[in-house]
């Protein structure tokens, strides 16, 4: 540690035009006197400021304790908010003021001698290096590893294999489930009733009026072992559209029932639940990336990053007038994955 800066001086070479080859070390900025160092009034003022900051912290801590005991969170939202506000403000005051006081103290009152510390070289000196190498050599010599080939092989093999007991289970857990067919099938099958989410009550076709929207789950979903995962795949959005507004391919005519159409609610872009249905335009908007599907026209993409229509669930009614699925989806639901159409 030195207080002069002579060791940072470097010889400056200049090229032909007189400009330095490298930037000169500007050295330290000239020392600035602080007001508190020369003016006793300023010194007193600075001291007072620091004291005030510490006093604020004391007040904050006392205030925190008072608020903790006298303003309990209570039962109402208003009382909880008041309690949180008081605790937070006083805690901030108590903690922040200590830090601010310490920093201010160090900046205005503590000595402002400027010191320099030179970086020492990273490389150890020759003596230490030679000593270390000699010790390593000595150790290798002592173990006799160069002479005992089998031993060398055994230790290398043991050390190389040991990490497998960690790596194999880890990788196995990550990539253990390569059964992609489960992404291709959902709970829907022929005769499965369409029921309301979350109550699970079946829906009659007569209840689905034009302009209404039903959020649909398959019947008996809650009996499944992994029902949340099954729900994530099987959720369906069902609307009734005036049959005059509906455009359907000939081969898909029997997938809808008197204008009632049901589509997967999982966006084909990255799989958000796409459920913002605008009944006047028949547009279904995905809240994540604004993909928009036209429900009156086979859920084709009219806007946004999704690249294919939502899969349609073929539906019909049973003898009692309840809406039922005709089959599972005819294509995998959700975003694309590379085995999707294999």
């Amino acid at each position: 540690m030195t207080t002069d800066n002579s060791s940072t001086e470097v010889e400056v070479r200049r090229d032909a035009s007189g400009l330095p080859e490298r930037f000169e070390n500007p050295g330290l900025a000239p020392h600035q006197e602080r007001m508190a160092d020369n003016d006793p009034v300023a010194d007193k003022r600075a001291e007072r400021q620091v004291v005030i900051l510490f006093a604020l912290s004391v007040l904050g801590t006392i205030g925190f304790l008072v608020a903790y005991f006298l303003v309990p969170p209570g039962e109402t939202v208003a009382s909880m908010r008041l309690s949180n506000l008081l605790l937070g403000t006083t805690l901030f005051l108590g903690m922040f003021s200590i830090g601010a006081a310490a920093v201010h103290w160090a900046k205005v009152l503590m000595s402002d001698h400027e010191r320099q510390e030179q970086r020492h070289p990273q490389r150890s000196d020759e003596k230490v290096r030679a000593e270390a190498i000699a010790q390593l050599k000595d150790g290798a010599e002592d173990s006799g590893i160069a002479r005992r080939g089998v031993l060398k092989g055994a230790v290398v093999t043991a050390l190389a294999l040991a990490p497998l007991s960690i790596v194999v289970p880890l990788v196995g857990e990550v990539g253990g489930d390569w059964n992609v067919s489960k992404f291709r099938h959902t709970l829907w099958k022929q005769g499965k009733k369409l029921t309301r989410d979350p109550s699970g009550e079946p829906i009659r076709a007569s209840e689905v009026t034009v302009g209404s929207v039903f959020h649909v789950i398959p019947e008996g979903l809650r009996d499944e072992e992994l029902w949340i995962e099954e729900k994530a795949k099987a959720i369906v959005l069902m609307v009734r559209i005036d049959p005059n507004d509906l455009t359907e391919r000939e081969e898909r005519k029997d997938w809808s029932y008197e204008g009632i159409v049901a589509y997967s609610k999982v966006c084909t872009h990255v799989g958000c639940p796409v459920a913002l249905y605008e009944q006047q335009t028949h547009h279904l908007l995905c809240p994540c990336h604004q993909s928009t599907f036209d429900m009156a026209n086979e859920a084709r993409v009219v806007f946004g990053p999704a690249s294919r229509p939502l899969p349609q669930l073929p539906i019909t009614v049973d003898d009692e007038g309840y809406l039922v699925a005709r089959s599972d989806f005819h294509e995998p639901i959700g975003p694309s994955y590379w085995e999707r159409l294999k």
């Binding site: 302009g211 209404s212 929207v213 609307v239 009944q279």
Partner: peptide, 13 residues
């Protein structure tokens, strides 16, 4: 009634 863009939520729904 389902005003404007909002769908109708009838008493069956």
């Amino acid at each position: 009634t389902g005003p404007q863009s909002m769908p109708v939520f009838n008493d069956a729904n």
